[in-house]
Amino acid sequence: MRLILLGPPGAGKGTQAQRIIQRYEIPQLSTGDMLRAAVAAGTEIGKRAQAVMDAGQLVSDEIVVGIVAERIEEADAKRGFVLDGFPRTLAQAEALDRMLDQKGLSIDCVIEFKVDEEALVGRIARRAAETEAAGLPVRKDDNPEVFRKRLKEFRDSTAAVAPFYRERGLLHAIDGMQPVDTVTQSITRVLDEECGVA
C-alpha cells in the first residue's frame, strides 16, 4: 500500500500516520528525515542536497523526489509506505507520479484531512496555553499568528494537490475534526474497503 496523507498543519496527519504504520506495518516517509539521512549517509543525492543547503538555497523538487526514489528501494518500503507532508505542490505530485511510474509503481490511496481552520487555530492556542501552564517551553509553531501563516502557505501551495489526485480517483476525504479514534476508524474503513488494502 502506497499512501499519501494530505491536510493542513495541525490536522492530525502525524498522529494518524503512526497508527497506520503500526496497523499495516509499512514505514512513514518524512522528506525532512530522509533528506537528513541521505546527507548523513553521503549518498550521491545526499551530496547534491548538502551542496544546495550549504549555498543557503531550498532543495529542488528533483532532489526531494530523488531522495524518495532512493528510500523506497529499501527493504522495509517494499510492501508500501506512507508519505506525510509530501507532495506539497502540484509540481511535486507530478514528479512523484513520473518517478513511481518509471519503477512500475503508483499511489494506491490519498487521504485528505478536512478541518475547520479557525477551530485548528483555537486548538493550537489551547495547546500553547496548556504547555505554558505546565511550565514547559512552547513550540514556536504553536503561536497562533505563526500558525495562521503556515495555514496560508498550505492553502497557497498545497491546495492544488488534492484536485490532482481527485481526478485520478484516488482522493478520499476524512473529517479531521472528529475524535482521534474516530478519525482512525474512518481511515481504516477507507483503506480496507475503498482502497482494497486489507
Score class of each variant (00 low, 15 high):
180 V>R: 12
186 S>N: 11
12 G>I: 01
83 L>T: 04
20 I>R: 15
184 T>K: 10
61 D>I: 03
110 V>S: 02
186 S>F: 08
131 T>R: 06
188 T>Y: 08
10 G>W: 11
134 A>T: 05
47 K>F: 04
139 R>S: 15
164 F>Y: 06
174 I>E: 14
23 R>G: 12
79 R>C: 01
53 M>W: 08
156 D>E: 15
145 E>T: 08
74 E>T: 03
196 G>K: 14
132 E>T: 06
22 Q>F: 14
161 V>A: 04
81 F>V: 11
102 Q>L: 02
116 D>M: 06
112 E>M: 04
86 F>D: 07
104 G>D: 06
103 K>A: 10
153 E>I: 01
131 T>A: 15
32 G>Y: 12
144 P>I: 01
80 G>A: 00
47 K>E: 03
107 I>C: 05
47 K>A: 04
5 L>E: 05
71 R>V: 00
14 G>A: 06
186 S>R: 07
3 L>Q: 06
30 S>R: 14
139 R>V: 11
112 E>N: 09
68 V>R: 05
82 V>C: 10
36 R>L: 06
84 D>F: 04
152 K>V: 05
28 Q>A: 15
188 T>V: 13
24 Y>M: 02
179 P>A: 01
3 L>T: 03
128 A>D: 06
133 A>R: 13
79 R>W: 00
79 R>F: 01
29 L>W: 13
77 A>W: 13
50 Q>L: 08
125 A>M: 01
32 G>P: 12
170 L>I: 01
41 A>M: 07
90 L>M: 01
83 L>M: 06
127 R>T: 10
125 A>I: 02
9 P>Q: 09
20 I>M: 07
140 K>T: 15
36 R>H: 14
141 D>R: 09
72 I>D: 12
35 L>I: 09
112 E>Y: 15
90 L>P: 07
167 E>M: 00
111 I>S: 05
134 A>E: 09
101 D>Y: 04
56 G>Y: 13
119 A>S: 15
125 A>Q: 07
189 R>F: 10
97 D>R: 13
174 I>C: 14
65 V>G: 06
192 D>P: 07
71 R>C: 03
25 E>I: 07
90 L>A: 07
